[in-house]
Design a protein around this nucleic acid. Structure first.
Length: 566
RNA sequence: GCGCUCAUAGCUCAAUUGGAUAGAGCGUUUGACUACGGAUCAAAAGGUUUCGGGUUCGACUCCUGAUGAGCGCGCCA
């Protein structure tokens, strides 16, 4: 709402000042750092520079122009301090507008997306490998972005592009056939398969020739070798069953589980098209697409004829464009694959499809351990189960300490623990690397998931026992500082969602929710809600109900669980 | 070697994308429930924004050099 006002001021000022000075004027409208300076401010330095007139004169002329804008009635004061013009909102009118506007929050999708389709590729774990904390990031970030997009009115297609193909299967099958133990693998599939994978890499150091064997096996698998195919199918099945447990716990779902293998029969078409368009070049036995000086070439086909990662990604992209006719496609994949997606876009551009511009790599920082990337090959992977179990146990400890008589303790501990992990991941911008630190992940005090849940619970317990009616309220009560902070924050909600979309970063929403909760808790410490006076009580209940609606919806969008007691 | 990303309080992160006195949480110290949930609130201490140089009314933000860290760089995904 404030953004709307700012925008109106900017547009109207620009047009009237451009007319006044007879040259193009750019106006900057922003919010001052500290609240006591006002609600909206306009620095005029750049205008002074373009029109080359004394600062004071320009300030007065801008103020005069402000008086003619369509939003002038919203302001109680206009002050000039140096080169800044500070506007103070009329708190009474603004509060009325906000409260009336926000009572229906959570019921409506916004029309920002206008029904456009966005395909989002996230989670995408590698079959026969444990679900790592790295994949957890992709899952959490992708899920939250998907939710936010849906709320904004986009049609979202969620795809789990399983890593169920590639030379790794040659390695695993080789290891399984040569030194695997069938009974052990059946009993504890993922763990045993990883052991085999790690053992294989140990063995390669002494016997480099088995790498070629593995590649051969994969090549045969690609061509439909029966025994290998059966093994592959089995590995895929047991792995997916494990992942589904995680998805259930996180409450994450997908529209499609088509992984890399799904595109096995769609790759020749890609190779053919590249050939027809004259983009494919033979180099050291392999087929590549040259991408100029800035980028290394894209390797499309190995010298033995089998395909590579980027070939499958191209096939997948074309399939998705044909099937869903997306307006944008998002890949929620770690930072280390940046070059890969730049190459992907470059190849698509060279093929003459201008939707290369709609491909976005939503990169995120690595999960580091002792400052280094984790690697399955070295066996240094942290299992997700351990993390979640730890978080749930800890929240159960908290409940036993703080609220031992609570019903359904285990269920609530589950919701708190899992949500804490989710929030911890989303609260910072996704581009930051994170050092894996269990203690940080399960911290329940301060800027955390439980803080948001606790705030919501506090409000819920007040609302459940009391009736209220947002028609009978006294807007004058919103004009003190600690109430108006809340009104202004409430007013920002939709703008925050739009910003989260523009940056593809759920952290924008996460930080906003913390901010809202903090203002509420501060308000709560200063004001008694259940007062005698009916109008005042009603007014406060109405305000906090709107706050809770936003908190709850915001938490759900992030993928967190809302609870009523804790 | 080349490319990309990053460097802000002891720690984890913000800073309206070039604006005013660089803000939060954790940790440390102190204070607050006979009013509704203390997983909370209030306050204090803590900074040459890694280091030079430049651009301009104004730089944490842009350019340039250095240092340090991470990631990537043809037959893995």
């Amino acid at each position: 709402m404030i953004d709307k006002i700012k925008n109106t001021i900017r547009v109207e000022l620009e047009s009237s000042l451009t007319e006044l000075y007879n040259q193009a004027i750019n106006v900057v409208v922003e919010e001052p750092k500290s609240n006591n300076l006002g609600d909206i401010s306009i620095p005029v330095f750049s205008i002074v520079k373009t029109v080359k007139k004394p600062l004071n004169e320009v300030v007065d002329e801008v103020i005069k122009a402000l008086g003619k804008t369509s939003v002038k009635h919203l302001f109680a004061e206009i002050n000039k301090i140096g080169g800044f013009i500070n506007l103070t909102l009329n708190r009474l009118t603004f509060s009325k507008d906000v409260i009336r506007d926000k009572q229906v929050i959570g019921l409506n999708k916004l029309d920002f997306g206008n029904g456009k389709t966005i395909v989002i590729d996230y989670s995408s774990p590698n079959i026969a490998k444990p679900f790592s904390v790295g994949h957890l990031r992709s899952t959490i970030i992708g899920h939250a972005i998907g939710n936010i997009l849906e709320k904004l009115g986009y049609k979202v297609v969620r795809i789990n592009h399983l890593g169920d193909f590639g030379t790794q299967f040659g390695k695993i099958i080789y290891a399984y056939l040569n030194f695997g133990d069938k009974a052990k693998v059946d009993e504890n599939p993922i763990e045993e398969l990883v052991k085999l994978y790690v053992e294989f890499h140990e063995l390669v150091k002494k016997h480099p020739e088995i790498d070629d064997k593995a590649r051969e096996i994969f090549k045969d698998l690609e061509l439909g070798h029966k025994e290998y195919y059966k093994l592959w199918e089995h590995f895929r099945e047991v792995s997916l069953a494990e992942y589904m447990k995680v998805y259930e716990m996180l409450n994450v779902h997908f529209d499609s589980y088509n992984g890399e293998a799904f595109y096995n029969d769609k790759m020749q078409a890609v190779v053919d098209e590249l050939t027809v368009k004259g983009l494919l070049v033979k180099d050291e036995g392999a087929m590549i697409v040259e991408l100029g000086e800035e980028m290394p070439p894209a390797l499309i086909q190995k010298s033995d004829g089998s395909t590579l990662y980027i070939t499958r990604d191209l096939a997948a992209l074309f399939y998705r464009k044909n099937t869903y006719n997306f307006d944008e496609v998002l890949y929620v994949v770690g930072n280390e694959q940046k070059l890969h997606f730049e190459q992907l876009k470059a190849v698509v551009k060279k093929m003459g499809y201008d939707y290369y511009q709609d491909i976005h790599h939503i990169n995120f920082g690595l999960v580091l351990q002792d400052g280094k990337k984790m690697s399955t090959r070295k066996g240094s992977i942290v299992k997700l189960d351990d993390v979640l179990v730890e978080a749930v146990n800890l929240s159960l400890d908290y409940i036993n300490e703080k609220n031992p008589t609570l019903a359904n303790k285990e269920e609530i501990a589950q919701k708190i623990g899992v949500s804490a992990i989710i929030f911890n991941d989303l609260k910072n911008h996704r581009i930051n690397d994170i050092e894996f630190n269990l203690q940080d992940m399960v911290n329940f005090i301060g800027q955390t998931g439980p803080y948001l849940q606790y705030t919501s619970v506090r409000i819920t317990s007040l609302l459940e026992e009391n009736e209220f009616n947002c028609e009978k309220i006294d807007y004058q009560l919103f004009t003190n500082d600690h109430s108006f902070d809340l009104i202004k924050t409430i007013a920002q909600y939709e703008e925050i969602l739009v910003k989260a979309k523009e940056e593809y970063s759920p952290s924008v929403l996460a930080k906003y929710l913390l901010n809202l909760a903090t203002y509420f808790n501060s308000f709560y410490a200063k004001e008694k809600i259940m007062v005698e006076d009916e109008i005042e009580r009603n007014t406060k209940l109405c305000l906090i109900s709107i706050i809770r609606n936003i908190l709850d919806e915001g938490m759900n969008l992030l993928g967190m669980q809302v609870i009523k007691k804790m």
